[in-house]
Amino acid sequence: MKIPKLFAPRESQLALPLAIFLHLFYVAPLIVLLASSFQSREGGVSLGQYLQFFQDAVNLKVLADTFWLGVQVTIGCLILGYPVAYLYHYTPAKWKGILTFLILLPLLTSSVVRTFGWVVILGRQGLMNSFLQSFGLIEEPIRLLFTHKGVMIAMTQIWLPLMILPIIASLAQIDPRLAAASASLGGGAWRTFWQITLPLTLPGIISGCLLVFALTVSSFVTPSIIGGGQVMYMPTLIYQQGVVLLNRPFAAAISAILLVMVLIVVFAFSALGQRSREYVR
């Protein structure tokens, strides 16, 4: 009697193919990764790899730099991305197509190509320095390539579309009558923005921030080319330990630490998201 019930269509079953796929190709490897991070040099189970990571000041600096880079790029994307999303929302429909294309354009080129583009722009004889020098704003070229600042600038450009898109989606959900109501009650443009529009787009902002943060701290190509060997981030460290030095358990431990960092930020943001949704209602 229960068997036909098992095969009765249920919404949850629609997700089954994806669930199987993810368990096979994502959850299982992740478990292997976590297990190998607890492997000691001699083959037993230990916390040695983690101790080794946290005892070395250089590794701690790499962890802090990675977190800080994530925060900076997220804030940078938010500051640059929100006005673009806002502009998009109030653009006449016929221009929206062109604007969509322009926003998505960076996603259409490979990040390797864009990174080498940034090498040309950030170099001492690059676009940025020669521009500033020709206007007499600086005398000596500023050092941007192989610095944390340079990586931050390039990453902000690269992940910007992923901040803009969710904000556009949440702007589209706002009932336009709310702004009219605010105006009719005497609210100015700024007040309407701060008290109505911004809080209502918080879910979009939060998902944009999550995407940008998670992608920034796990980027490999851009930080390793623009940062070089002098500013290290977690993914470069993982590659170096895992692929070059064949120190797999240690690389697994670093990956696990990076994962935990991302998860903490994700949970913090989703808690914030819950709150903001309550506010919206």
Partner: peptide, 8 residues
Amino acid sequence: PNLAGVVA
């Protein structure tokens, strides 16, 4: 001090 950078 002489290094412009350490490249990948």
